[in-house]
Design a protein around this nucleic acid. Structure first.
Lengths: 119, 119
DNA sequence: TGCACTACTTACCTTTCAGTAAGCATGGGA
DNA sequence: TCCCATGCTTACTGAAAGGTAAGTAGTGCA
């Protein structure tokens, strides 16, 4: 097996969720897809500044395996592939919302304190 | 600087929250401290089966730096140190709850499908 | 003829994360 | 005198995550 052997026995729910959402770009992919509904590979790449093609595909593949996203291939040339969220992906994104709010509030706190190094 | 140079500019709130909660044991530490209120180092270690002393301290120190936990040292011999959550730590734990529920539901789904390898 | 477009794939390297094992300081009890 | 307990610290090692750069296929267009 080349893919990660994950889905091990989990200590708790957070564990199980983290297994699926950890990875530098996954939450952003979730967000992009939830916002736009459907996105092509190139659109996603342009929507996530700094991601490399290798990383983007890697994360998309894992998310597909984990049942978070759908991958629709059109047999055209040049190739066309569309990605969208599954119901699981959408509910995960919803479950991440409070965490996002917490993070936003924290970032605001840090900026106010001058603790954040913005450059 | 020996500590991680984190708190970089964040793309979104999830990013900021993940920066602080990623790490193999942090969510479990949060959970333990929320459950018990106050715990000594040894109690935490015994409460997190499989954690090494090195990892536990590393994560506790980072969480302290991030303002999630309080560290109370008693100048005794043998040493005695007590850890507890700050208000930020408690609110983070609350924000993690929906994610935990999602993960629990997912784990249940996987087990029902027979997709999960339990041994 | 050759270049562009798209969605990948591959090889290689660096950085980060995590685990093991050992050592340290101090005082009390056997 | 030696060992035990506690809460660390340090050095070394391996594994995993992530980054860079280049290559691939097939068609259309200049």
């Amino acid at each position: 097996m080349t893919a990660k052997a994950r889905r091990g026995p989990y200590v708790c729910g957070i564990d199980a969720a983290m297994d699926v959402v950890s990875g530098k770009w996954k939450s952003l992919i979730l967000w992009e897809l939830d916002n736009h509904g459907v996105r092509r590979f190139g659109e996603l790449r342009r929507g996530l500044p700094g991601v490399s093609e290798k990383m983007l595909i890697q994360q998309l593949r894992e998310m597909e395996q984990d049942g978070l996203i759908n991958r629709q291939v059109y047999g055209e040339v040049p190739p066309k592939v569309e990605y969208s969220l599954t119901p699981d992906g959408r509910s995960l994104n919803a479950a991440l919302a409070p965490l996002g709010d917490w993070g936003t509030a924290r970032a605001a706190r840090l900026t106010a304190d001058g603790t954040l190094h913005t450059h």
